[in-house]
Structure formats: C-alpha cells, structure tokens
C-alpha cells in the first residue's frame, strides 16, 4: 500500500518535473547520461572493519580563580541506585565518565562534588553558589589541553526537579556543568533539598 503511494508520488513528481522542463522549453536538449561516466552512489558508506575505540582525554583538574577553587578531577560513573557516583573526598570533583569530556565534539561535560561531608568537612564546591555570570573556569585534561569556560548561569534547583536529560546531554553544543548540593538540610535523611547548578560555555 505504501509502495503504491510512493510510486504515485514519484510519478506525480516526475510529471511535475516534466511540466517544468516543458515550460522552460528546449526539452530535447536534456543530455543523456553518459554510460562511461564514473558511477557515484547516493549514499555514503565506510568499511565495517573492527577498529579500536580511541578513548577521549579525561579531565584531571578544574580551576575557578575567582572562587579560589583548584580541584583534582576523578572519573566516576553511576551508583547501583541510579544516582551519579561522587568521590567521597569533598576536595575532589567527579567527572561523569559516560558522558562527554571537554575535548568531545559535542555535549555537556558534567563535574560534581559533595558540598560537605562529616568526614571531610566543607568542600570547595560550597563556593559555587557565589559564582556570577562571566566567572572563568578552566578544565585541564589528561592530554594537557586547557579548556576555558565562562559561567552563564548559577541556579538552585529542587533535587527532584533536576533536569538530568538536559544537563547530561551528549549531542548539543559543548558545555560544562558543575553540580553540588544546597538549600535546606534534612537531618533525618542526611540530604540537601536542592542542587546548585552552574552552567558554563566554552570561551574562544
């Protein structure tokens, strides 16, 4: 049925094209395809050979001079409960290793760190809430490349409302997102009410 529709459509398109050609006059001048011409495919194709996957350079250091932040970055994944894994130490930032890295062609690099802990005290990311638009952030990766970003927004979001699909994006423009906790603290669940989210875009 769909095939029939398509044939009808293509014939209609053909008639339309033929009509256009006719009004443009000199239809007989249309050159015939040359049989000896090199043939080109309408579709791109490539070898399906098994090739090694080249790992991307991992971020190793984040510095925010205006907030006095200089932190080592460690690759992390997800916990069994589905939440993002984080370094226990509040002085270390975790990079979501399943998402983009600063050197990736697209998508958001996500770094997160505990704002505080009973064992390690208050962490450097406690200063994120005081960042202002334009604050500069640099992230160094394992290839030694320095990636510079400018803060575009700092917001406090209720944890349940955290837009994870947007923040952990892999196909949009290159971005850096920093996440920690803030808001009020619930002593019965030992957790904060909000996430502090810093969004930064690459500087030229």
């Amino acid at each position: 049925m769909a095939k029939v529709t398509m044939v009808v459509v293509t014939i209609a398109a053909a008639l339309l094209l033929a009509a256009c050609t006719a009004t443009a006059s000199a239809p007989e001048a249309t050159p015939e395809p040359t049989p000896s011409a090199p043939r080109e495919g309408a579709v791109d194709a490539h070898s399906a050979e098994l090739v090694p996957v080249v790992p991307i350079a991992e971020p190793t250091l984040i510095e925010i001079p205006s907030a006095g932040i200089s932190m080592v970055v460690r690759a992390v994944g997800v916990q069994a409960d589905g939440l993002m894994e984080l370094p226990e130490e509040t002085a270390v930032a975790g990079w979501y290793r399943f998402g983009p890295a600063p050197g990736s062609e697209s998508g958001t690099t996500v770094l997160a760190s505990h704002v505080d802990s009973l064992e390690y005290g208050i962490g450097p990311f406690a200063a994120l809430r005081n960042l202002v638009a334009g604050s500069e952030i640099t992230v160094t990766d394992s290839s030694g490349t320095l990636h510079r970003y400018g803060v575009t927004s700092v917001s406090s979001v209720q944890k349940q409302q955290l837009p994870v699909a947007d923040l952990f994006d892999r196909v949009g423009p290159r971005r850096l997102v920093l996440i920690t906790c803030g808001g009020q603290f619930d002593y019965s669940t030992l957790s904060y009410s909000d996430n502090i989210v810093v969004i930064a875009e690459p500087l030229p």
């Binding site: 997800v78 409960d81 589905g82 939440l83 993002m84 984080l86 979501y96 399943f98 997160a112 760190s113 505990h114 704002v115 505080d116 802990s117 009973l118 005290g121 208050i122 990311f125 406690a126 944890k159 349940q160 955290l162 994870v164 699909a165 923040l167 952990f168 892999r170 196909v171 996440i179 920690t180 906790c181 803030g182 808001g183 009020q184 603290f185 002593y187 030992l190 957790s191 904060y192 996430n195």
Partner: peptide, 22 residues
C-alpha cells in the same frame, strides 16, 4: 549510539554544614 540513559540525580552533600536555614 544515542541509546544511553542518564543518572537519576546527584546527591552531593551529607552533613548540612552549608545549609540554608529551615
């Protein structure tokens, strides 16, 4: 590619040392 899911959230504080007043 593009069949990934995301973490469900980020639980990034444990002590309440820098909490806003409740």
């Amino acid at each position: 590619s593009g069949l990934h899911s995301t973490p469900d959230g980020v639980n990034s504080g444990q002590a309440g040392l820098v909490a806003d007043p409740n």
